[in-house]
Design a protein around this nucleic acid. Structure first.
Length: 361
DNA sequence: GATCCGTGGTC
DNA sequence: TGACCAAGGAT
């Protein structure tokens, strides 16, 4: 470790040389030597939180087309932002993205702050994203530590403390080996290397520009790092979900609560997501008690929809029914939408799975 | 520090 | 096929 710290210059030079020759061409990156648009950097960094480059690509292009500037995004409605974000997941990011755009547009006159501390005050911008924006968009020498860099550093030093407890230790090592110049390129280089060479399962050390600095490579136990705390088992939750159709073909949707899981997104009405399995009749009684007689006889089950969230499995039992009745007697906040219009609504992937199950069988 | 928060790809 | 994983943040 001491040897590596003393060879910081050789290490960072190898990283930057590798980047000059192998940098990935990504939609949000500017040509070599050009300063990127801070709006593009911010937008991409928010989208890339816990999300792969391949998944983000089309969403990044869509958002830039819809809202070319931070002012345009700030002027959009939250519902339009959620609709455009639908499918990307972690919807608090979209809510905070909108809040942040308004803050930058109003409080900072449309100019993103350049320093880490001011960036940290923005909604949805945490330690990683603040450092990344400051380094990449403004070339500030900030210590950028994401999951890739955690993995690289933990292998360089064979850090045995499990994550996330090792975060502080890793950040200190990362700080010691980073260069003073080209901090943005350096951070992106490490992330590229982490994504393509120093991968989680079987790293391609033969292609790594800094394998000679790596303790885990020397020991031959790269795959043992980073050490992570054990994970908890996911419980399974179940519910009955209703595809309630009107004679004109429109289907009943409602908006979820502003906060929490799938916050602010649209959904097909369902019973509460709990541990126990509910009968169709019981589900109708829970959600549409005033129309039990009209619904119970004609309810048709479709194939079970399985979906896994970060911390639980979900099994939704779709039920197809039809109903003609005054709206106010059906469901508070319900909204009738024709399936061909679903694309312009903020439907998360789970609900599109339900629609698919209903259409098939 | 622990928990909550999506989704699609991979082995 | 199911667990693991990905450019984390908020509470």
């Amino acid at each position: 470790m001491v040897q590596l710290a003393s060879s910081q210059k050789s290490f960072s030079a190898a990283i930057l040389n590798w980047y000059d020759a192998h940098a990935r061409k990504l939609p949000w990156r500017s040509p070599p030597g050009m300063q990127p648009d801070p709006y593009h950097v911010w937008l991409s960094e928010i989208m890339l939180q816990q999300t792969t480059v391949v998944t983000v690509g089309p969403y990044f292009e869509k958002f830039l087309n819809l809202w070319p500037t931070v002012h345009a995004l700030a002027a959009a409605s939250l519902d339009d932002v959620l609709t455009a974000w639908a499918g990307l997941g972690y919807y608090a990011r979209a809510r905070n993205l909108h809040k942040c755009a308004i803050a930058v547009s109003i409080e900072f006159g449309g100019q993103f702050p350049k320093d880490r501390d001011n960036l940290l005050s923005l909604p949805g911008v945490g330690p990683y994203t603040a450092a990344a924006i400051s380094a990449i968009a403004f070339d500030k020498p900030e210590v950028v530590v994401d999951g890739n860099i955690e993995r690289i550093v933990s292998r360089l030093y064979r850090i045995t403390t499990p994550l996330p407890a090792a975060k502080k230790e890793i950040t200190e090592f990362a700080s010691k080996i980073m260069p003073r110049r080209r901090a943005g390129d350096y951070a992106q280089a490490l992330m590229d290397i982490g994504a393509t060479i120093c991968t989680p399962r079987t790293p391609n050390c033969a292609a790594c520009p800094v394998s000679r600095h790596c303790a885990a490579f020397a020991a031959g136990d790269m795959a043992q790092f980073p050490v992570k705390a054990p994970k908890k088992v996911k419980p399974t939750r179940r519910a009955v979900v209703f595809w309630l159709e009107r004679s004109d073909g429109a289907v009943l949707l409602r908006r979820r609560e502003e906060k929490g899981l799938l916050g602010g997104m649209m959904e097909f009405p369902s019973t509460d997501w709990g541990e126990e399995t509910l009968s169709i009749e019981m589900a109708i009684m829970r959600l549409f008690p005033a129309h039990f007689q009209a619904l119970a006889g004609q309810a048709a089950q479709k194939s079970l929809v399985r979906h896994t969230f970060t911390h639980f499995h979900l099994e939704l039992q779709p039920v197809v029914t039809s109903l003609e009745a005054p709206d106010e007697t059906i469901l508070p906040g319900g909204q009738w939408v024709k399936p061909e219009e679903f694309g312009s609504y903020a439907l998360p992937t789970l609900m599109n799975k339900v629609a698919r199950a209903v259409a098939k069988g």
